[in-house]
Amino acid sequence: MNRRRAGRILTAVLIAALAVPLMYGMVQLPAPGHADAPAHTNVSAGYIERGAELGGSENLVTGVLLNFRALDTFGEVLVIFTAWLAVAAVAGTASNAERDPVPPSPVVDYVIRLLGPFIAIFALFVIVNGHVLPGGGFQGGVLLGAMLILLSLVMDAETVARAVSARSWIWLRATGVLVFAMVAVMGLPLAGYLFGLPDEPGLRQVLTVALELGIGIGGGAVLAGLFFAIAGADRS
């Protein structure tokens, strides 16, 4: 008992000790894009000068993520998809949901149904504006995943099955990987190398948004899939 208490106090102290420098650090963060920031004084000067022109995006970070370092980002998308594959392989996909004894509260049911479409629109907004504002595919994907998890609390199994069959879930989760691979291959004819983006700004923007949409939809479906797989594994 005493040891447990001591352990708790130690945990609290450690968390506080971690939180204080983190908060201090956050306040000290240089303003994004500020020229005097340490991250911006060396290599990134070149990025800042020519990034917007070469990256094909008004937002430098998005340009770097989706163009200069597209291969890295492709790797990240693959990692997320593989994570779901691994969890699904271990935990199963929980598609045969059985009867749940307690119906959800009518208040929660109504509010989630009301808010759901608005969350989806906000997620799409974050995804589509990823090339202008900070944010983009991954953040929008988190929102989409949160929406799917919320909806799963109140929707009955048949409606879910009618909306998205088990087979199309897999394609949805692979969207990020597929879109990325497609854009990468399209770079060959359009720019002459893998992941190349064409010079035409309009086409370039469309491709960037397509990448963001792929990351967002794929990421959201994978997140929700992870939740469902773990939730399904819990009920033995």
């Binding site: 479409p117 989806a120 629109i121 799409l124 907004f125 589509v128 409606t159």
Partner: peptide, 17 residues
């Protein structure tokens, strides 16, 4: 961007939610 997104989301919400 907003118009197709809203039409699609509204249609899905009407059909399923």
């Amino acid at each position: 961007w907003g118009l197709p997104a809203a039409v699609a989301a509204g249609g899905l919400a009407g059909a399923f939610l």
